[in-house]
Simulated assay, not measured.
Amino acid sequence: MTKQSKALYFIPYSIWLVLFVIAPLLLIFYQSFFSIDGQFTIENYKTYFESSTYLTMTLNSVWYAFLITVLTLLISYPTAYLLNKTKHKQLWLLLIILPTWINLLLKAYAFIGIFSANGSVNDFLAFIGIGRQQILFTDVSFLLVATYIEIPFMILPIFNALEELNPSYISASRDLGANNVETFRRVIFPLTLSGVKSGVQAVFIPSLSLFMLTRLIGGNRVITLGTAIEQHFLVTQDWGMGSTIGVVLIVAMLLIMLATGEKRKKGENHK
């Protein structure tokens, strides 16, 4: 393939990148310097960093994103590990990924029916004698639904990392006298850490800006930056403040990507 043909293939990608990634980011950054009256100002950033309300929302966003990521990882790693050992692993992986093809709003409304006062979960609790409980519009229901939705995005990179793991490393570990726990701790997990980092990025970053689930499942009990952005753009019409929060959120996402990204070793040869 010649350099000219390579450049030709690169043109559509460049156009897409400029129109749908770079331009929206620049517009958000530009809009963040305007007040609700359309006046150029830096008061939006001053308000954000001096307001205990916005800082609390930031901490809530990070905390809930952290909890969702931890719960997702605790479920996904053993699942991916066992999945890698099964006979028809590609089929099982496809079944795990299938729910991601369903619209998020449809899944949210399905869980509203499941967790509602007359839903199937409360029907089961009443049947076994515990009685109906308030499940919907709680932190627990929000975390459960968010974890369920994010699980496939954590399983996939971990599964790929496990599949690429050379079995000879595990055999060598066993030959050297390591038991299953030591083999996992010293060989399997460190060599699949890249998959874990990719999964953390795929889960933590979107979880920072959740707003639909906080409203439908959490009943606005869970207030995050995503909720604040929605309110500023759709309710108060303060696009400047909404853009300011969006800029802060983008910076936080970039920091997470840098923290969980692969670090190249010094002296590494580049092809």
Rank of each mutant, 00 (worst) to 15 (best):
L67Q: 02
Q4S: 11
I75M: 12
A108R: 03
S194G: 14
T47S: 13
S209Q: 07
R186P: 00
A7G: 12
K85M: 12
I170S: 01
G177P: 09
W63V: 09
A161F: 11
T41N: 04
Q134N: 15
T138L: 04
L98I: 15
L106I: 15
F49K: 08
A161Y: 03
M1Y: 12
V222C: 02
V62I: 15
S35V: 06
F20Q: 09
N220E: 11
F233W: 05
I155F: 06
A108P: 04
T47H: 10
S120M: 14
A65H: 03
E50H: 13
P152I: 01
E43S: 14
Y81A: 05
F189I: 13
E163K: 07
Q39G: 05
I97N: 02
L125W: 01
T72N: 04
L55T: 11
G177F: 15
G199F: 00
G261W: 01
L74H: 11
R264L: 14
L91Q: 06
P152T: 04
G131W: 08
Y77H: 05
S207Y: 07
Y109S: 07
L249I: 08
I205H: 01
R221K: 15
Y48H: 03
I205C: 07
A23V: 14
R174L: 10
I68E: 00
G242A: 05
L82E: 02
N118F: 07
Q31S: 11
L95V: 09
L95N: 00
Y30D: 01
T138M: 03
L225F: 14
L165V: 07
F233T: 11
F124G: 04
I250Q: 07
F34C: 10
G177E: 10
V181E: 01
Y109P: 06
G261D: 02
S32A: 10
H88Q: 12
N84F: 13
R185V: 10
T224S: 04
G267Y: 00
G240H: 01
A161E: 03
I130S: 10
T236I: 03
I97M: 09
L27T: 13
A252Y: 08
F127Q: 09
S120R: 07
L17G: 09
I170D: 00
L71D: 01
S5V: 15
I223Q: 12
I128E: 05
I217F: 04
L8G: 07
V140C: 07
M253Q: 12
L26V: 15
L216Q: 02
V181Q: 06
I188A: 03
Q133K: 13
L234K: 14
L73D: 02
F66S: 09
L213K: 00
T183Q: 06
L67A: 06
I170K: 08
W63Q: 04
T53E: 09
L71W: 06
F33I: 12
L98T: 11
F111W: 15
K6E: 05
T2A: 08
T100N: 06
F204S: 00
K89A: 04
I223S: 08
L225P: 02
D175T: 14
V70C: 05
L73V: 13
Q231K: 13
V187F: 09
T214V: 12
R215M: 11
M257D: 10
A80N: 02
I28V: 15
L125V: 05
S52Q: 11
A202G: 10
V248K: 01
G219V: 11
A259S: 13
E150R: 10
L83W: 04
L136G: 03
V200Y: 04
T56C: 02
P78G: 07
L210H: 01
T56E: 08
L83N: 00
